[in-house]
C-alpha cells in the first residue's frame, strides 16, 4: 500500500519534471529538470528492487553525464529562440511519433496481456542484494566480455589522445614549462644587490 502511494507520487513528479525539460525557456533550467527527472526514476527503480540500477543512474547520469551537459550548455551559449523556431513546424511529426509509441505500448500492455492475470512478483528477502547478483554474473559468466570492454575504453583513450594532442615544440612558441616553474628557487628570481654607502 505504501509502495503504491510512493510510486504514484514519484511518477507524478517525474512527469512534471519531464515536462519541465521541454518547456523551460532557460537551457540550464532544462538540464536541472532532467537531473530531477533522473532522480525520480532512480526512486522508481528502487521500488522495483533494482537498487544497483538506481545507484548507477544517480552516480553515472546525475553525477557525471549531467554535470558535463551543464558545462556544455553554459559554454556553448545556445540561442533558445533559434532552437524553438522549428517547434510548431515539427509538431505534427512529433505527435505522430508519440502516437505510434503510445499505440505500441497499449498493444503490449492491454491487448497482448488480455485474459492473463497480472502477477505481482514476489518480493525478495531483506538480505537479497541485487548488486551482488549482478556482480556475480558479470565477473564469472561474462568476465571475458567485461575485459574486452575494458580494452575498448583504453583504446578510446588512446584514440582520443592521438587525434587531439598536438605536441608544441616549434621554436619561438611561448609555452609553460611546468617542471622549470616548480623547480625555481628564490635565488633565480631575486638578486640581492649590496649597495655601498654613497658619498654626498
Amino acid at each position: 500500500m505504501v509502495t503504491t502511494v510512493l510510486f504514484y507520487a514519484f511518477a507524478a513528479i517525474l512527469l512534471v519534471a519531464a515536462l519541465g525539460v521541454i518547456t523551460a525557456r532557460n537551457p540550464v533550467h532544462s538540464v536541472l529538470f532532467l537531473v530531477f527527472a533522473f532522480l525520480q526514476s532512480a526512486v522508481l527503480w528502487l521500488l522495483l528492487e533494482a537498487e544497483f540500477l538506481a545507484i548507477t543512474l544517480v552516480v553515472v547520469y546525475v553525477g557525471a553525464v549531467m554535470v558535463l551537459f551543464l558545462f556544455v550548455v553554459m559554454m556553448l551559449n545556445i540561442n533558445v529562440e533559434e532552437l524553438r523556431s522549428g517547434f510548431t513546424r515539427y509538431l505534427p511529426l512529433g505527435i505522430g511519433v508519440a502516437l505510434v509509441v503510445v499505440i505500441e505500448i497499449a498493444n503490449v500492455i492491454w491487448f497482448r496481456s488480455e485474459g492473463q492475470a497480472f502477477v505481482t512478483p514476489t518480493p525478495h528477502a531483506a538480505d537479497y542484494s541485487n548488486t551482488k547478483e549482478l556482480g556475480g554474473v558479470l565477473y564469472t559468466e561474462h568476465v571475458f566480455a567485461l575485459e574486452i570492454a575494458a580494452m575498448l575504453l583504453l583504446l578510446a583513450i588512446v584514440a582520443a589522445i592521438t587525434l587531439t594532442m598536438r605536441t608544441r615544440h616549434r621554436p619561438g612558441l611561448k609555452v609553460q614549462d611546468v617542471p622549470a616553474q616548480v623547480a625555481v628557487r628564490a635565488e633565480d628570481r631575486i638578486r640581492v644587490v649590496k649597495v655601498g654607502p654613497v658619498k654626498e
Partner: peptide, 12 residues
C-alpha cells in the same frame, strides 16, 4: 565487442 574493438582502432 571484438568487431567494435577493431572498428574503433580503424576509425582512429
Amino acid at each position: 565487442l571484438g568487431l567494435e574493438l577493431q572498428a574503433l582502432s580503424l576509425y582512429a
